[in-house]
Amino acid sequence: MPAKASRDSVEGLVDSLLKGDKRSAGKLISLIEDDEPEAVEAVARIFPHTGRAHVVGLTGPPGVGKSSLINRLVRAFRSRGKTVGVVAVDPTSPYTGGAVLGDRIRMADTGVDPGVFIRSMATRGHAGGLALATFDAVRVLDAMGSDLVFVETVGAGQSEVEIASRAHTTIVVEMPLTGDVVQTMKAGILEIGDVYVVNKVDLGNEDVLVANLKFQLETRDGWTPPIIRTAALEGRGIDDLAGAIEKHALYLDQSGGRRKREVARARLEILENVQRLLVRRVSDGSRSGRVFQKLAEDVAARRLDPHAAARKLLGSGSTAQ
């Protein structure tokens, strides 16, 4: 579908957004999600108004109860007087290219609260990658005035690491397995979490998982990741989890960690944008595109190695300016 938002001026949308208008927030996120040309302008206009929200990423395998946890967390923070945004990332069906975005249903009872904004996004082929679009959407909610923004993704591939590198607080959600099985952690999962949640403790066997986590988790920069037991559907452990998030936010403020994370994230985003610009520059019919094609042919013919070609391309890129 053509972007409806393009009919509205980006400036107008951003002005309304800053007044807290949800309809504008919805449209701006669509621009970003659809990777419309206006998105660049939109993000540029929004950016100066961001940086206030505390961004919490949740990751974990499908079915572990992330949406239900977020639903409960939203309620918990609402009752503490905070406004809350949620960006839920759903996998796009590889068969139809469509998606049924179902996370809303689990969060349905928080959806009409004026202090809550929930948006589902599909993981279709966004040129900047999942994370870039998702976290630009987070900025929209930040600029709208959300105190907290939760980002939910299915823990598959690199998305956990992407979340961890951008969120202020990363929550890793696991659940105890039923039956007599040895539960192993996905590689890398122990390094990224600021808070660990063992959800669905009603299913039993959680002691093994908790002990296993406790044994393996280490203190990093003076923060020892807490392990919180929850049963999201029944609402158990949610206050503990909300408390852990607040505590981590406080730790970031007091330790200077927030600033450190922001800088690390900025570095990452600059590099991502460099890559994105470079890809765009060499793939059209421009002079750089022709240089790129020539270099590729040289490498294929073994006249040049790929490293040397890359150095040449960057060189030509700069001279092309």
């Binding site: 579908m1 409806k4 938002a5 949800k22 309809r23 927030a25 919805g26 449209k27 996120i29 669509s30 469509g98 998606a99 049924v100 975005l101 179902g102 809303r104 249903i105 349905a108 959806g111 009409v112 904004f117 929930i118 948006r119 589902s120 599909a122």
Partner: peptide, 26 residues
Amino acid sequence: MEVIYTGLRQTPEDIVEAAIQEDVDA
């Protein structure tokens, strides 16, 4: 095409709020 399924038993308020936040066409 993407479908946002809001589930059963939604009130008109729920539906309209979801439509606005998700910026749907229909």
